[in-house]
Each structure stands twice: as C-alpha cells, then as structure tokens.
Design a protein around this nucleic acid. Sequence first.
DNA 1: AAATTCCGTGCAAACGATTGCCACAGATCT
DNA 2: AGATCTGTGGCAATCGTTTGCACGGAATTT
Lengths: 342, 342
Amino acid sequence: MKRRVTLKDVADAVGVHLSTVSRALDPSSPHRVSSELAERIEQASRALGYRKSSAGYSLKTNSTRMIGVIIPDITDPAFPPIIRGIEDALARRGYVAIVANTDGDARRERDMAMMLRDRGVDGLLLASVEITDDPSREDWRDATPVVTVNRQVFGSDVPSVIADEAAGMDAIVTHLVALGHRNIAAIAGPQHLSTGVLRQRGFLAACAALGIGGSPSVAVARGYREEEGERCTETLLATAPPFTALVCANDRLAVGAITALRRRGLECPDDVAVTGFNDMIMVDRLTPPLTTVRVPKHQMGARAADMIVDLIEGKPGLERSAMLPVDLVVRGSTARVRSTVG
Amino acid sequence: MKRRVTLKDVADAVGVHLSTVSRALDPSSPHRVSSELAERIEQASRALGYRKSSAGYSLKTNSTRMIGVIIPDITDPAFPPIIRGIEDALARRGYVAIVANTDGDARRERDMAMMLRDRGVDGLLLASVEITDDPSREDWRDATPVVTVNRQVFGSDVPSVIADEAAGMDAIVTHLVALGHRNIAAIAGPQHLSTGVLRQRGFLAACAALGIGGSPSVAVARGYREEEGERCTETLLATAPPFTALVCANDRLAVGAITALRRRGLECPDDVAVTGFNDMIMVDRLTPPLTTVRVPKHQMGARAADMIVDLIEGKPGLERSAMLPVDLVVRGSTARVRSTVG
DNA sequence: AAATTCCGTGCAAACGATTGCCACAGATCT
DNA sequence: AGATCTGTGGCAATCGTTTGCACGGAATTT
C-alpha cells in the first residue's frame, strides 16, 4: 500500500518548496519559474510518477472539470451519437461527462440536476428539456452554466444547440412535391418538445409555401416511439382524407407508420411514401430504406460541449445559440406518386 | 455570489462543533449523537440548504464514488442498454459513471484508464477488453478494482459478467435443426473478443452434439459491422458448400448477411434462414424480423455495477464472476427448410 | 460508596492543491 | 552611487471533510 505521490514529495526530491513545483507544473501559471528549475522539476515529477490529485485541485479551485449531461434515455438511438459528440469535444478540452437518464420524468430531471450539482459539475448540458421549462428559475441556474442540446426552451435565454428543423421539413416536402405528391399527411411529434413543434411548424409552413391545398391532416404522437407511429397511422387511415405521402416527425414514428401501413395492406413506397427525421442508425437497412433528414448529431453534441466549456472558462466571442444545417437523404421509402390515383 | 454552506455554518447555527454536525449527518457514523441534537442539526442543515462538498469528502476519504466505464463506442447499439443498466445500478448505490470510448484502440484504452484513474475513480468497468489483455499487469490494477462486462479476458482472474454465449448458440442450432436445416454455415465474430470465440465454440459444439455432418463452414468477421456481414456472406456463397441456414455471431452481422443474400437474389428466410445474436434495438422491425438470442443487457450492466461496488465496499459473499442466462427469440428470419432442396 | 464503563461532544490534525504576499537577488535607471 | 524594477522562489492560509483522541459527567458495577 504505497502512499500517493504529492507535490511535497517531488518538492523534497528537487529541494524546493512545493508551491514552486505547483507553479512549474502549471503551464498557464502567472508566476514563472526558471526554465532550468522547471526542467528538473519536470523530470523528478515524472520519475516519481506524480499525478495531480483532482480532489485537492477541486477543493481549492472549486472546479471539477466535469459536465453533467441529462438526457431522457441513452437507450433511445437518437442520443448516443449526440453523447459521443459531447464526450469527444469535452475530452479534447480536459473535461468529462457524467450522464443521467430521466425517462422524460420532470421530477427525475430535477433530482438528477441536484445530484449533479452536489457533485460539483462545472456545467450542465440538457437534452431533456421541454419547451415550457424554465431552467433560469432553478436555484442552481445562477451557479451553474447551462446549455440545451437538440431541444430548446421557448422564450428563454438559455443557450441552445439545435438542428435546423424547419429547413429539414422544407426539404422533405419539396422532395415529395417534386415526386408528384399532393395529398400529404403528417405525424407530428410531442408538442411539449421543441423538436415536435418546430418540425410541425416547418412542415405546415412548407406545405403552405408550396401551395399544398387546404390544411394537411396531422396526427400528433404522444412520444417518439414506434407504437405511437402505428397508432397515429391507424388514426389517419381511419379519419383523414386519402393521402399518398406520410411525413413523420422522426424515424421511429416512421418505422411504426410503415408497420401499420403494411398491416393494412398498404405498401411503402408504392401506396404511400413515408419519411422520417434524424437518420438514426439502421434506418438505411430497413425495407424499404428510409428517406429522412440527417441531423449532425455528433457535431451537435460537440458544439454544445464546446459552448458550455467556453461559457465556463469565460471565452470571449461566444455566440448564444447555434442552429446546425441538415441534409435530406433520399432512400427507398419515397417514390413518385402512382399515376393511377384513387 | 453567495458562499457555499459548510459544516461550520450549520454548526454555528446550532451552536455545536462542526465535527458533531458531520457525525449527525452521517447515518453510518460509528460515533453517535443524541437524537434530540441530531434532529436540530438535521433541521438547521435543511434550513440553511447545506450540501456536502464532494471535493472535501473525496480529499479526506480518498473516495469519489465514481466508476470509470470503458467501452468501444457508445454509438454501437450493443452498448447503450448495458450502460443504462450500469448507470441505474450505480445510481441506486450513490455512484455515478464516467464513460470513455476507445473505438477498439488498445492505446486509447490505456490512455482512458489512466485519465480515469487520475480523476480518482473508485473502480473500472471494462467492456472493451480483448481476450489476451492482462489488466492485472497494469500499474493501476493493484489500486483500483476492475470488472469486465460483456467480454472477458481469458485465463485471468479479473471478475467478469457475461452472457451464456454457449447456451445461446445451442438454442439457435437446436431451433434450426428442428426446422429441418442440416446445412448450416456461420459467420463468426472477431476472434480477439471473447464473444467471438465463445459463440463460435458454442456453435461448433452444438453442431457436433446435434450430429450436423462434417465441419460446418464458417467465415470469420473482422469486426461486428454490417459490411463485414456482407463480406463474409459473399465469401461463404462463393466458397462454401450450399447451406440453408446462416448463423451469425451478432445482429449487425446478420443484417449485413441478409443484405448480401438479397443482392444475390436469395430471400430470407425462404432461401436461407438467418440468425443473429444480442437482440439489439430495431431488429424486430426489420424485414424479416430477426430471429436472435436475447441477452439481458440491462441486467448485465447492473450486475457488473453491483459487483464492482461490492468489491469496492468490501461486501462479503461476492462471487467472482457471473454468467447470465439468455433466451432464444424466434421471429421471421428463420423458417422450415424448403422441402425442395437443390 | 468507590471504581469502572459509557455516552455525547469538542479539538485538532490530516487530505493535496492553489495563490497572494513577501523577500531577496541582480539588473536597470537616474 | 543610490533607488527602483524584475524575475524567482518560499511561506502560509485556505478549500470542506472525516476521524482518532481527550474529556467530563452520568450510569452502571462491585
């Protein structure tokens, strides 16, 4: 059971005071140390195997170089790429992430935020917020920088990093119209999430801009799950006017939609074209492969991570928010509308 | 900028020494405090909003209640459920996870382990090990408990939590044989991973036990990726004797296999039955839905987490390793062999 | 009744690092 | 030549806990 090597140990080895060692080892120290001495200290510290104690560091500096990341569920394929982006960017800057799952429960979100604050995280990345949340009212808000990622709180000044949902929807509708579709229905996402409302708005705006007649029928899902996609499709099939294309607010809804259509004897894309949103893993391996909007998930996470670290370290020239561009990726689930209509 | 509330603050408020407060607030303290006083302290601490400083705690106790988790890539669908299990179990016991990705790079694995050790994690969960690794030789090994999860190091005494790979393969082969298949080929996983060799061994053993003639043809994949599944399938199709069933070492390989078969004009399951392993998300939505082996991913993570916490806290009666039972889940990718053969 | 145990609390020493301040050279300025 | 910098390094306080030890009084034992 060998004791840990401390600043004092290497100081004794070199024959200087431990404060000198501290300064020599800190590249950004205001106080400088002669380069000759710095070299000897460097060597001794390496020889002894010195490693700075993060506990001591944190206690003194009140900084842990840890970021709390709160997401609904790491098991939802939408999040791992974002988290990976966060972790990669944080690692580059000497930080790490602690991620907590809420399962969409607001109470758990509060608990997790408290727990993370207790652990002294330097900042919080929130992928779990709802549009009506008010992170600024929380007691921890004034102490801890917060950035939301993938989602945002409406009417709040909390910085966020999101995708250009409207542009994505516009690309989809444009694509469908180009294929000759005029009767387009939609499954909207949950309206308490910014992705849900932004995509729906984008869809409606695009339809209007392209002159799709009347108001398209949309069913709104209670969650981004395949079963909801199925349920909404059933509803649309039962109550909406006939449609040749079905625009879904995300890939999982689209997967459910295709299942439900097939169950009703309708084939995709021959009978109805279906689109998703997100381009999550595996959707290119479905039958048919899904036409969807690729959102830069890794980049989104990385950007949010950089943003919060900038905030923490007081970097200048930091933008308040970011909206990342998206790409339409056309696959097999969309096709030219059948000439023989109804 | 209000100062943080410390033990001293609540001690002053109550009129006792801070050490007494420390004891009163620690339920497992050896030294007890009169319950009347404890009550007053409890109240004062709540009123003042006292929260223990984890930095101070860590510095003094040399324990961070953090566990490092090293995985290949959180973006691979195999891992999120395991991680979720780890996080859930750790949370129950007051710990958190810091996860690091290696992308299968041994050097990065070392770096990450060092980084985590520097941060003072109390233990390490390794999902990235290769069969020839020797975690016990690492310098950090003697200081930090380690448990491997999902994979294991052969011939090592490092505790591990894995699935019963052999039983899974046996269930698959039995199922196929019951459907009348006699010409079974396989795509094995990477042979530097325990899952790869254990599943291959299991497959071969099951074939032998069930009297499948000769030695089945197997192609070995260089990684658990769809493209490798495609490549191996091409190879088998080109060089192996005809087969009616294709057993894949994991779901992603199976997905690739189905793609490749289809490209050659072979339909699954009509022309060849295909099986996966793992039951990852979405495979039930493929066309056809994949017959596979469900491994208890969440439970596996949770078990590993509990195991390492037990190790850390010196809980008695701890088993060294665990092998979790698996289930065969039959879906549409397997069917009775066509009566008209050849 | 004297001696012993217990119980509840205070005291102070760590744990390991950062950093403002001081001291002391030698160099530079008037 | 005397005064003022400037560059290096030491000192000591501080961050917030935990915990072994001491101590006084009450309760128990003999």
